[in-house]
Design a protein around this nucleic acid. Structure first.
Length: 291
DNA sequence: CACGATGTTCCCTG
DNA sequence: CCAGGGAACATCGT
């Protein structure tokens, strides 16, 4: 499920339940593929991770695009902190459960706190857990040299134009999904953005690289990201109880999932096809390939 | 039974 | 080396 806003939702859910709390017990299912790269990056692998988390106190957390991380203060080593990175892949989810929670089938990580149990579950195991230990002020290698977040000042229409030029022959849809440039944008957000900007998902990016068009795309990217964070993650307000939040019918979102949908703006039929390797939905009446 | 799924990475080709 | 396309990864639900 997870794109920008869903990732932030899950981070807030763990943070709301676990901020400044101590981990009494940590259970990591080492058979889960989400730990496939852990041993390479964190000496001792899953075993040492669980041991290090035990007794640690959750001190900080953040997201960047589809990545999120939690920083723990470890006891007895005042200057040492543990970074726990979580990527949710395609089916990852995070929960705050009662203390008597019983482990479920695809639980990869379970942290027992005094009043709640934090759970990371991922059936398809395309997600990933990473870890790193070091002093506060330093950062794990996998959090260095990150691209500008799409809602940051550094993310400009000029940058969008450059990216579209560089990948001139790739369809817009494929370029928007590239996390190197647009961290956090996933399949439904890309469709929502292109629909808002009235750009055809199969349009070769080079033909949208002129500054006026790049500006239009840039504005749609920021608008969709901002609105999604408010509605789905409750940013600026209360954390929603789950992801079953009401999405306005004025978005493409509610109409894109199956054949037969109607464009909320034109009321004409939507189309669905594979573009850029992913199922894509667009409004032919609004998003023209030739102009 | 077959198909597809809100993601990333690796491999191949041009 | 670069850009782009396709398969692979693993499981569940329609």
């Amino acid at each position: 499920m997870p794109e920008l806003a869903e990732v932030e939702f899950y981070r807030r859910r763990w943070w709301a339940a676990g901020a400044r709390q101590t981990v009494n017990a940590a259970e990591a299912n080492s058979r889960s593929r989400v730990y496939r790269s852990l041993a390479r990056e964190f000496p001792g692998g899953v075993r040492v991770l669980a041991k290090t988390l035990t007794g640690a106190k959750l001190a900080d957390s953040a997201t960047h695009g589809k990545q999120m991380w939690f920083v723990f203060k470890t006891p007895h080593q005042t200057k040492q902190f543990l970074w726990l990175g979580v990527h949710l892949g395609m089916t990852g989810s995070m929960h705050a459960e009662p203390v008597d929670y019983l482990a479920q089938k695809h639980d990869a990580l379970i942290l027992s706190l005094a009043r709640r149990t934090l759970v990371f579950n991922d059936p398809r195991q395309f997600g990933r857990v990473r870890a790193w230990r070091g002093p506060m002020g330093e950062r794990p290698p996998w959090l260095q040299n990150l691209p500008n977040e799409i809602l940051s000042r550094g993310f400009t229409a000029e940058f969008v134009s450059k990216v579209l030029q560089r990948h001139a022959r790739a369809p817009l849809k494929a370029v928007l999904l590239n996390q190197k440039y647009f961290p956090g944008i996933g399949n439904w957000m890309a469709d929502e953005i292109l629909w808002r900007a009235a750009l055809h998902p199969a349009l070769p990016s080079g033909r949208a690289a002129d500054l006026p068009t790049a500006k239009k795309l840039h504005a749609a990217i920021q608008k969709v990201a901002h609105d999604a964070l408010c509605v789905i993650a409750g940013v600026g307000g209360k954390l929603p109880p789950d992801l079953n939040v009401h999405i306005p019918d004025t978005w493409l979102f509610n109409h894109r999932w199956e054949d037969g949908g109607l464009c909320p703006k034109t009321k004409k039929p939507l189309r669905r096809a594979e573009i850029g390797g992913r199922t894509t939905c667009w409004s032919p009446a609004r998003q023209k390939l030739l102009n």
